[in-house]
Amino acid sequence: MLKAINITKKFGALAAVDDLSFEVEEGQVFGIAGPNGAGKSTLYNLITGFYKYEGKIEFDGQNITGLPTHKIARLGISRTFQIPQIFESLTVEESVNLGGRFGSSGKYDSGYCDEMISFASLEQERSDKTDLLNLLGKKRLMIAAAMATKPKILMVDEPMAGLNALEIKQMTNLIKKINQDLNITVIIIEHFMKVLTELANPILVIENGSEICTGTPEEITSNPEVIACYLGDTHDA
């Protein structure tokens, strides 16, 4: 469904993503892990057209290399951000409708946007300004707005960061529902290995922009190179 072929992104002399290739298949929850600065978020920015790069990315057999972000969104790749991005001037409902109106390739469907508000458990806050939401609410909102674009792939960037145990459970369930109930392919970047191994299969581990290994959660957590560079000897996955 999504195929990255030898993609490289350099910032000056630094290669943030270095000759990386991988493939995401339809229906998967594809995990991406790696230490801070490994190039995970840069990889998201390449897929979603924020940066130019060398190499090629194909989505549903179509070459999306060089397309602007808004066109990639309309093709069916939607994303959230590591640091919550919200529209402070808009309400929850307006923010979700924005995704439905601009990001969906079909006709604007207000009913579907309403469904996504309920799906993300934001019914009570629908008329609130978005800056009134707590961290979990902001993350839910990013997901609801992204889902309103009717994506084929949803890319979430560290959705558990900053959440407490109960909130992590709620967010984990939401991502499972997106994948299982709505049949949407999910790509997830996450540091919290317990959650990542519960949700994702396969998992790609990268360091310094290059692939260390790709495999099942069991393969990843037992890989000596991954343990050495990322998990450490005392990981609890």
């Binding site: 979603t48 972000t69 808004h70 969104a73 529209f87 992204a146």
Partner: peptide, 25 residues
């Protein structure tokens, strides 16, 4: 109109707006 909503969205977070299909250009 949705133009006004797009203007506000681009002002608040151009990256998020673009990722939701709003053409900044």
């Amino acid at each position: 109109s949705h133009w006004g909503t797009a203007f506000l969205a681009l002002k608040d977070s151009e990256d998020f707006a673009a990722s939701l299909g709003v053409s900044a250009f």
